[in-house]
Computed example of a mutant assay.
Amino acid sequence: MISFSTIDGTPVYYWRSNRGNTTPRTWYVTQAFYDRLVLWVRDLRSLSSGYGSVSYLVSAGFYVNKAGQHGAGTAMDLDHVRWSGGTTCSPLDQAHASGTQSIRRRYIAVDAVCRRRFRYALDGWYNSAHADHIHSDFGDLPPRCVKGSSSDCKFVQAMCNNFMNSGLAVDGIWGPLTTSAFNTAKSRLAVTGDPHTTSSVWMSMMSKVAQHGFANTAF
């Protein structure tokens, strides 16, 4: 394990016991996971550059003494992102369920950036346990879209609903309506190749989704 308080220079705070706290906190992960976090935060900066720089991140945890990816030091729970221009994205405040479309789209954008670098991203649509954070971990890499994954399917369904008004049930079942909406999204985003089998195609698609989400534009 290594310790850190910033990811590539961006502070990571803890708000669960004191919201708004900006006291530096020491976190622990494996070196390999930290290296992936650096790639992730650089993606986030690049794709959201219209908001200014990423001022800070807030997390509910990385290494935690329990079984699973957190216990292995290969997981992140993301609570909040703030940019220098004042814009925020707050999974902690259940932004995925906001009544404001632009806030939901921004949440999906952050979610998509996570999915560029992490195979497992569990968000507010996945289940109630993740309503207040986005969990990302090292499980089952490389990143790609797996039809049989409830997390991936619900993300795709929510994405299609929020950017194309597809009217899908966010039920985690990859049926013909989800297939049709996903193919429409691929076409509108000019995605070529198979995001289900080719990691680079899925990563490219997630970049395009993130760009639309941060810009609050439909596709």
Rank of each mutant, 00 (worst) to 15 (best):
A181C: 00
M205F: 03
W125H: 13
V58N: 04
F62N: 05
W202K: 04
D8T: 00
A131T: 05
S151L: 02
G20I: 01
S187Q: 14
A185I: 05
I173Q: 08
P24C: 06
S150M: 13
F214W: 09
M76T: 08
V64F: 08
F163G: 00
V54R: 03
S136L: 13
N162G: 06
T184V: 06
S102C: 07
R25Y: 07
T198W: 07
F163Y: 02
K154H: 02
A190M: 13
A169N: 14
I103L: 06
T100K: 10
D171V: 10
L78Q: 10
V41T: 12
V191M: 10
G68D: 09
T184P: 01
A121G: 08
I2F: 13
I108W: 10
S180T: 15
H70K: 01
G9P: 05
R117F: 05
T6D: 10
G52I: 02
S90L: 13
Y51D: 03
Y56V: 02
N162D: 15
S151R: 03
A215P: 14
N161C: 12
D132E: 15
D132H: 15
S49D: 10
L189D: 06
P24T: 12
K147P: 03
F163E: 00
Y34Q: 02
L122R: 12
D93Y: 04
G68K: 07
L47E: 05
N127E: 10
C114M: 12
A181P: 07
G52H: 09
N127W: 01
L168G: 03
N127D: 15
N216K: 12
G9V: 07
F219N: 03
V110K: 04
V201D: 03
D123C: 04
S5L: 02
L122Q: 13
A190S: 15
R117I: 00
S149P: 04
Q69V: 08
I134L: 15
D137F: 04
L122T: 14
N21M: 13
A210Q: 04
Y63D: 03
G172L: 06
T178V: 05
V146K: 11
